[in-house]
Design a protein around this nucleic acid. Structure first.
Length: 480
RNA sequence: UCCUUCUUAGCUCAGCUGGUUAGAGCACAUGACUGUUAAUCAUGGGGUCCCUGGUUCGAGCCCAGGAGAGGGAGCCA
């Protein structure tokens, strides 16, 4: 009888135990020449070839070996008789575990467009590209926990549902159990949230930072890694309505410490992905090279994916202030020749993505950390510099991605923080718990937010953020 | 949300100045072949030309509106 024991393909492809009888279970990728089955079980991006003795196998079984079918194959592991692979399985027994109607199964042994695969996101894991992408995604997630754990950080789970809409960090998704057809009203005619589940208006979190700061004021070093929700109507290749974010918060860190931690973290996790996903990154590198062949010469990347990642590991990120960046941009060729859509003429303007791209991709040609932005374009909680104009903010900009990290040293001085909140009409009463950290044993501290999917984009070389999360949520789209 | 491009077979895409029966490659089916590498060869089936309305003797093609998708911008991670 069929046993449930099986060997993973990853193990077999490196095995030299020729002559041993093994069982493999997986899904058929292609069936060539009526005898060669390429089987993939997800353990590796590579397939194993199982060779069927078609003359002694009944025809109805052979007909059921179709792309997508789940099979169990038992046979002898042998040195491959053909070129193209080292080992193969000489099939002794083949069982179809699950049929796949070849006429209806959308995946074919051919190249599919990413747009088409996005429409069948429930099946796209079964392609080489998505196998590689999600292996890398896993490796990066694992490495993030490992990095922080090695450094004694505490992993905090901050709430998903929050009642504070005081932060003003973008549009939020409302959480409610109220009956929309019959909403309870107050005497003034407004929706009466007192009758809602939590007795007040609640939303999905847009950031765990404020709660993270509370924990940092006890544990010293903490981080969060969880889902984040933004109801912004963003339709771009680098925004999602539901995404994952890593937010470390460190007591007694200043901005320099903060930058160093972020750079160390990024390099650590990229290195871990390269070490543990060599096959996957090799595949993604070649995929990208193929794709770029369609593009004109001047739009192709100078470095291939592996070289780009290595370059990132071997060079220090460029650190400069917003003011220095403005000077560079002001004197840049595209600015003088009026090639920028938004010309840089004065200090204080927010940098457009064309400016960030110029700095990262043309001028420095490596990751850039910009610091000390004008306070007007940054959040209320950032520590104010003595110049009265700038705050201790930092953004890390990556080639092709833009902002991958946004962070700051936090304003730990109660009076300055309260004044800033007043200027920006942020209700201090609602955030009393946040301000308590400044009232009781306040201390310098800093932190940042790292967009996980943007990191996965960079490491996989994919170009659309919807292709590095399993089931993307974007405006007008929440399929699966 | 704004700008822009696109939507023709299961997939990728042709389709001339608006002209009578809308094509190719892959996939699929049947057969041949049998150490293939997205196997090959032959034959065959397969279409709401995104939707609605309009112009015209005649619309896949022109016009208007709508839907969906891609790219860019803004917001940001």
């Amino acid at each position: 009888m069929e046993t449930s024991k099986r060997t993973k393909i990853k193990e077999l492809l490196n095995s030299t135990a020729f002559g041993s009888i093994i069982t493999v279970k997986g899904w058929v990728r292609t069936f060539r020449n009526n005898q060669f089955i390429a089987i993939n079980d997800g353990s590796t991006i590579n397939n194993i070839q199982a060779v069927v003795d078609f003359e002694n196998t009944d025809e109805t079984t052979l007909k059921r070996i179709t792309t997508g079918a789940a099979v169990s194959v038992t046979g002898e592991l042998i040195e491959s008789l053909g070129k193209g692979q080292k080992v193969e399985i000489k099939v002794k027994r083949l069982e179809i575990l699950g049929d796949s109607d070849a006429e209806k199964f959308p995946l074919q042994p051919k190249k599919h467009s990413l747009e088409f695969l996005r429409e069948i996101a429930h099946l796209r894991f079964r392609t080489n590209t998505f196998n590689a992408v999600f292996k890398v995604r896993h490796a990066l997630a694992f490495a993030i926990h490992q990095f922080f754990n090695e450094r004694g950080f505490v992993y905090m789970h901050t709430p998903i549902i929050t009642a504070s809409d005081a932060e003003g960090a973008g549009e939020m998704f409302r959480v409610t159990t109220l009956d929309f057809d019959n909403t309870p009203r107050t005497e003034e005619g407004k929706v009466d949230f007192k009758q809602d589940f939590f007795g007040k208006s609640t939303n999905l979190t847009v950031s765990g930072q404020l709660e993270g700061e509370l924990a940092a004021m006890a544990f010293g070093d903490i981080y969060t890694f969880g889902p984040t929700f933004r109801a912004e109507n963003s339709n771009t290749t680098r925004h999602l309505a539901e995404f994952w974010m890593i937010e470390p918060e460190m007591a007694f860190y200043d901005l320099k410490d903060n930058m160093q931690l972020a750079e160390d973290l990024l390099k650590y996790v990229i290195k871990h992905a390269m070490d543990t996903c060599a096959d996957e990154i090799e595949f993604l590198k070649n995929r990208l090279l193929e794709e770029e062949k369609q593009k004109p010469q001047d739009e192709r990347s100078e470095l291939d994916l592996a070289a780009k990642l290595n370059f990132c590991l071997n060079n220090d990120f460029e650190r400069l202030t917003y003011t220095e960046a403005i000077e560079i941009l002001k004197n840049s060729t595209p600015n003088k020749k009026k090639k920028f859509k938004y010309l840089i003429d004065s200090w204080g303007a927010d940098l457009q993505s064309e400016h960030e791209r110029f700095l990262v991709e043309k001028h420095f040609k490596k990751p850039v950390i910009l610091t000390d932005y004008p306070k007007e374009i940054k959040s209320f909680y950032m520590r104010q510099n003595d110049d009265g104009k700038t705050v201790r903010a930092m953004d890390i900009l990556f080639p092709g991605i833009g902002e991958i990290v946004g962070g700051s040293q936090r304003e730990e001085r109660l009076e300055l923080l309260e004044n800033r909140m007043k200027e920006l009409n942020i209700p201090a009463e609602e955030l009393y718990w946040y301000l308590d950290t400044r009232r009781f044993g306040t201390a310098p501290h800093a932190g940042f937010g790292l967009g996980f999917e943007r990191l996965v984009l960079f490491v996989t070389g994919m170009t659309n953020i919807r292709d590095v999360i399993a089931f993307p949520r974007t405006p007008k789209s929440a399929e699966f």
